[in-house]
Design a protein around this nucleic acid. Sequence first.
DNA 1: TTTT
DNA 2: TTTT
Lengths: 170, 170, 170, 170
Amino acid sequence: MMNRVVLVGRLTKDPDLRYTPSGVAVATFSLAVNRQFSNQQGEREADFINCVVWRKPAENVANFLKKGSLAGVDGRIQTRNYEGQDGKRVYVTEVVAESVQFLEPRNASGGGNRNDNEFYGAPPREPQGNPYGGGNQNQRPNNNQGFTRVDDDPFAGNGQIDISDDDLPF
Amino acid sequence: MMNRVVLVGRLTKDPDLRYTPSGVAVATFSLAVNRQFSNQQGEREADFINCVVWRKPAENVANFLKKGSLAGVDGRIQTRNYEGQDGKRVYVTEVVAESVQFLEPRNASGGGNRNDNEFYGAPPREPQGNPYGGGNQNQRPNNNQGFTRVDDDPFAGNGQIDISDDDLPF
Amino acid sequence: MMNRVVLVGRLTKDPDLRYTPSGVAVATFSLAVNRQFSNQQGEREADFINCVVWRKPAENVANFLKKGSLAGVDGRIQTRNYEGQDGKRVYVTEVVAESVQFLEPRNASGGGNRNDNEFYGAPPREPQGNPYGGGNQNQRPNNNQGFTRVDDDPFAGNGQIDISDDDLPF
Amino acid sequence: MMNRVVLVGRLTKDPDLRYTPSGVAVATFSLAVNRQFSNQQGEREADFINCVVWRKPAENVANFLKKGSLAGVDGRIQTRNYEGQDGKRVYVTEVVAESVQFLEPRNASGGGNRNDNEFYGAPPREPQGNPYGGGNQNQRPNNNQGFTRVDDDPFAGNGQIDISDDDLPF
DNA sequence: TTTT
DNA sequence: TTTT
């Protein structure tokens, strides 16, 4: 119905980039968003919000953001659940980013971001047949710098496989 | 830093109203927000988003919303964690509503909402001293229709006490 | 960089649907959004916010909304300017809706909205070549019920032609 | 009803700080927000969005932001109108910022922002009596560096006086 | 499992 | 009347 989230915060770690079996990029990261007011103990707390982003912007995130980077997210809240390792249902609430903006100033901490200090997600729904051109649909991507390398199965060795093509937001 | 959420959806159950030991009202509810696009199986899925609201708007929510009510929420994402029953940490991501709007039409399903079909939350940060006048700070509220009744301890019998005054957003 | 708007309010008039010379639908409407608090005179004021929506959702707006309809808008603020009738520059600030939701209850005021009480905008970027199928790109659309009829030039007789294909948000 | 705006962009000029006759601070500034996609000519356009902020955050804006500063705004769209110099009604659509965040890195361009690289607006609705303590209600503020100085009437010499205490959002 |  |  309506579901909109806007966040600005800092990555708590380097983003994690993976690929679904059919070759779609997906990056996950956690944003620390400092709260506006201090608590009763006078401390400034933060919320740690898990984010997911798909396709081209996933690769941008992996290439341009790292632990500590200031980033903006425009997206929506998603809930999902899966069978946990112990057989019980695990409930997840996270933010699916439709666009991510790099808010670090130019030539800061070794970035390399062209495009006027920002980049944006691909359109939430893809243009035509082969999304993101180049037939990268069913083959392994070959530029593997900057993210968790995967060989055949991007999720191999990942005990908790809870992201699949079914989670694609489009 | 920046943390803003806007939702429109329907309550999955009647809201749950409780009071902290010091007498502050807090309502929780879950909103089902239908997704914009159908999935690959052609089904329209929904996200089920847990919301919390404090003080006067908590009481409004309890009085005016029920299972199935269409409502709008303007707030922020909050994360917190507590020691689970089994001793392990439980992580929670939820929405703290700063204002809640009743979107059901006038004289729909037994509402009774005055104020031009809407009501709003109290200001996000409280003035000082005695919020919401009337010295309801340290005594039990006595209008108990429409919400989970509490006797002495609002959380009595609630095995999982993970909301306290410390969670007050101001 | 980041530009996000979410509104819920009521149409002040029936929406206005037109077509650009190349056949792209564009609807405009104004939303009255009641303010949260009364002013010093105790009156509840409203903001009257002009909105524009393109393509399929424009036609949905024309078909499903009318004066007084409760609607939600998710979009962004756009500013533009044009040469006024008196030769001076006119500045416009409006909301470009990416999706519009019909918030009126089912079978209310003669709607006819299927799809679980809501509809959404088309994807911000179009699927393939011919957007919205049917080759309506360069010909007049022929379902003219429910909106301002246009014959050859959709803006004919409209002294102030300030919307063209150049204003297309994608 | 619901009216929420989140922006990130750069100030097109130094902010303008004034005071109402009763001594309430109000700052105005314009944010250039680059659009996400280039237009058909391949240029990246921007929206220029006028913002208003009241009270303490107005003074923070005047003290910490200047032309070119990167800032985030969380607020709402407001429309108002006034009698123009030529006797005809002028319609204004602007953003009332409830909080403003300074997104420039620490020790950037001569800032001086403490508070962990950000500051926020005062609560949207004021406690009571004397807002922001210190009896600054009916007297001229005396720290006049960094903003348009005013002597007796903060709007003196301002041909277009269209902001008064009546425009206070609370 | 948390960022500046 | 526009910013990097």
